[in-house]
Amino acid sequence: MTADAARTDTIALMQRYYSAFNAGDWQGMLDCLSNDVTHDINQGERVVGKAAFAQFLGHMERCYKERLEDIVLMASDDGTRGAAEFVVHGAYLATDEGLPEANGQTYVLPAGAFLAIADGKIARLTMHYNLADWTKQVVG
């Protein structure tokens, strides 16, 4: 596979993943992941596997309503690494353990992700956003 084709395939995979996110299509997101996907949760633990990721999605759906805008996708020449930068537009719906109380506060937060790609699937997803900025927005 040429470098352009590998990069293009990785960008297309990430586009499918983030389009599914914005559509609330959790199965579509899961379909983009390897069975043993590693998920590094921002300011949190590392979880492994699609079942753990699906559980994370359920938790997120209960506590947050988010949409990603201004998405910029990048991929390495060999297609094994990707990165995404975006702005999260969200609402805090239900109190998340260890975080401030939720009452529908909205927030706008720059964020990013680093991805490893293997066999046409996302094998690792590492999320990053500024938790202090998010907390300041929801506390007021």
Rank of each mutant, 00 (worst) to 15 (best):
A123H: 05
G112S: 12
G44V: 10
Y129P: 02
A12Y: 03
H39R: 11
T80W: 06
A111H: 03
E101G: 09
W134E: 02
A5L: 14
T106H: 14
C63Q: 09
G98F: 11
W26K: 00
D40P: 04
Q27N: 15
A116L: 12
G90E: 00
K50R: 15
L109K: 10
L13K: 00
T95N: 04
L68W: 10
L73C: 10
F21I: 03
K121S: 07
Y107V: 13
T10A: 15
A12Q: 06
W26I: 00
A20G: 12
G58N: 10
F56R: 04
D4V: 13
L33G: 02
N42V: 08
C63S: 14
I71N: 03
L125S: 06
Y17T: 06
R81T: 15
T8E: 07
I117F: 04
C32E: 00
E61Y: 05
H89T: 08
A3F: 08
A91G: 07
N103G: 15
L33Y: 05
K121E: 08
A123Y: 02
E101P: 05
S76W: 02
A3E: 15
A5V: 13
G28W: 02
A118Y: 06
Q15S: 14
Y107L: 12
A113L: 12
A51G: 06
A52F: 07
A6W: 05
G140Y: 07
A113D: 14
A123I: 04
D31K: 00
D25R: 00
N42W: 03
G140M: 11
D36R: 05
V37K: 00
K50C: 04
E97T: 12
H128I: 10
L13I: 01
A102R: 06
A116G: 09
A123N: 09
Q43C: 13
F86K: 07
R124A: 14
V108D: 09
T10Q: 05
A23T: 03
H89N: 13
N130W: 07
A51N: 08
T106N: 11
D40H: 13
R81G: 10
A54N: 03
S34L: 10
G120Y: 00
I71T: 09
E61W: 03
A132D: 14
N130M: 10
A51V: 05
A54T: 04
A23G: 09
Q55R: 14
H59N: 04
Q137T: 09
D31I: 01
A116D: 14
M29P: 01
A132Y: 13
A6M: 13
Y92W: 07
D96F: 00
Q27Y: 09
S34W: 06
R81V: 13
L33N: 04
E45W: 05
D4I: 11
L68R: 11
L30M: 01
M127H: 08
I117V: 15
V87W: 05
V47C: 04
K136I: 12
A118F: 05
M127Q: 12
D119R: 13
R67L: 11
C63M: 09
A52Q: 12
L131K: 11
N35W: 01
A132R: 14
Q105D: 10
D25S: 03
H59Y: 04
K121C: 11
M127D: 12
